[in-house]
C-alpha cells in the first residue's frame, strides 16, 4: 500500500493569481471560462443548488468539493444542459448556455463525465473511444453509406484512441465489451472517452472513485498534462489528497451554496469549510482516515 502511493510531499506547480481582489465566495476571476449568475434548482421543497455568483478560471484545475448531497452533481448537470435550473443564467467562454441542449454544449467543448459511470456496455472499449471523436463525417447518415468518405478519418481516430487507451492502461482490453470492465476501469474508460472529444473544459464527476492508488498517481499526472495542453479542468472529488495535489483553485459547496473558495491550502484552513465538510479530523491526515493513501512521514 505505502509503496504504491507516492504522491510527492510538494504539490505540483500550481497556477496562481487566478482571482481579482479579496478572496470570498463568488470572487471574480482574471479570466473566467464559466460564469454562473443566480442559478438555482429545486427538487420539490429541497433547494439542491442555489449559486449567486461563481466563476471558473480558465486554464486551471478547479476542484469542487463538499459533503454528500451538497449539489455538486446537480450543478454539473445544470452547467452541461442535462438539467434545467429554475432561475439564473450561466455562460461558457462568453456564450450564454441557457436553453442550449446538452449535445450542443458538448460540441462547444464543455465535456463531462458522470458520477455513475456510463460505459456503453455492449460496445467494445475501442468503439466506446471512437464514439468520442469529433468531425467524423461517417456519423452523418448519407456519408455513412460510402466508406471511402470516412475510412481515412477512422484510421486517425483509432490511432488517437489507442494512444489514450495506453495511457489509461486499457489498451489490452480494446476488443472487449465495455460491460466486461471492472468498475474502476469503466471510470477510466469514460474519462478517456471524454478526452477523445478534444474538450476545452473537462468536467469530471469523481474521476478517481474506485481507481487504485497506483493508477491514481498516473492519472493525476495526466490531468496535470491536460492543463499543460491548455485545457481547463473542473472536477468533483472527495479525496483531499488529489484535491491538494493538483487543484489550483478549490470551490466548496454545502447545501447548494458556495460557502468558500480559494487556493487549496487556504480553503482547507477556512473554518466554514472545516465546519461544513472536513470536520474535526482536519488535523489528522485524511488519507490515513480513508486508508487510501499513506503519506510520507513529516507531511501534514
Amino acid at each position: 500500500m505505502s509503496s504504491s502511493a507516492k504522491i510527492p510531499g510538494k504539490p505540483a506547480s500550481k497556477t496562481t493569481g487566478l482571482h481579482i481582489g479579496e478572496i470570498r465566495p463568488g470572487v471574480s476571476k482574471v479570466d473566467p471560462i464559466v460564469t454562473i449568475d443566480g442559478v438555482s434548482r429545486r427538487f420539490g421543497g429541497l433547494t439542491a443548488v442555489d449559486v449567486e455568483h461563481l466563476e471558473i478560471p480558465r486554464g486551471a484545475i478547479t476542484a469542487l468539493i463538499g459533503p454528500n448531497g451538497a449539489g455538486k452533481t446537480t450543478l454539473f448537470n445544470l452547467l452541461t444542459g442535462f438539467d434545467k435550473p429554475d432561475t439564473g443564467s450561466w455562460s461558457f467562454a462568453g456564450k450564454s448556455l441557457a436553453g442550449i441542449p446538452a449535445f450542443k454544449v458538448a460540441q462547444m467543448g464543455q465535456v463531462r463525465t458522470f458520477q455513475l459511470t456510463k460505459a456503453l456496455s455492449l460496445l467494445t472499449v475501442l468503439e466506446n473511444m471512437k464514439l468520442g471523436a469529433k468531425d467524423q463525417r461517417g456519423e452523418k447518415l448519407l456519408y455513412s453509406l460510402f466508406s471511402f468518405l470516412w475510412k481515412v478519418k477512422e484510421v486517425e481516430i483509432e490511432a488517437k484512441a489507442m494512444e489514450l487507451l495506453k495511457r489509461f492502461k486499457l489498451d489490452a482490453k480494446k476488443d472487449d465489451f465495455a460491460a466486461s470492465l471492472s468498475g474502476g476501469q469503466r471510470k477510466l474508460l469514460e474519462m478517456a472517452r471524454a478526452l477523445m472529444t478534444d474538450p476545452v473544459l473537462v468536467m469530471l464527476d469523481e474521476p478517481m472513485a474506485g481507481v487504485n492508488p497506483a493508477l491514481t498517481q498516473s492519472l493525476l499526472e495526466h490531468v496535470l498534462g491536460l492543463k499543460e495542453q491548455g485545457m481547463t479542468v473542473l472536477f468533483v472529488e472527495h479525496d483531499m489528497h488529489m484535491v491538494r495535489h493538483i487543484a489550483d483553485w478549490v470551490i466548496v459547496m454545502a447545501e447548494g451554496r458556495v460557502v468558500a473558495e480559494g487556493p487549496a491550502e487556504e480553503v482547507m484552513k477556512n473554518p466554514a469549510v472545516i465546519d461544513a465538510y472536513l470536520g474535526s479530523h482536519q488535523d489528522t491526515d485524511l488519507g490515513t482516515i480513508t486508508g487510501r493513501i499513506t503519506l510520507p512521514k513529516g507531511k501534514k
Binding site: 452541461t80 446538452a102 458538448a106 465535456v111 458522470f114
Partner: peptide, 8 residues
C-alpha cells in the same frame, strides 16, 4: 445520456 455528453 452518454452519447449526448459526447456531443451527438
Amino acid at each position: 445520456d452518454a452519447v449526448r455528453a459526447l456531443g451527438k
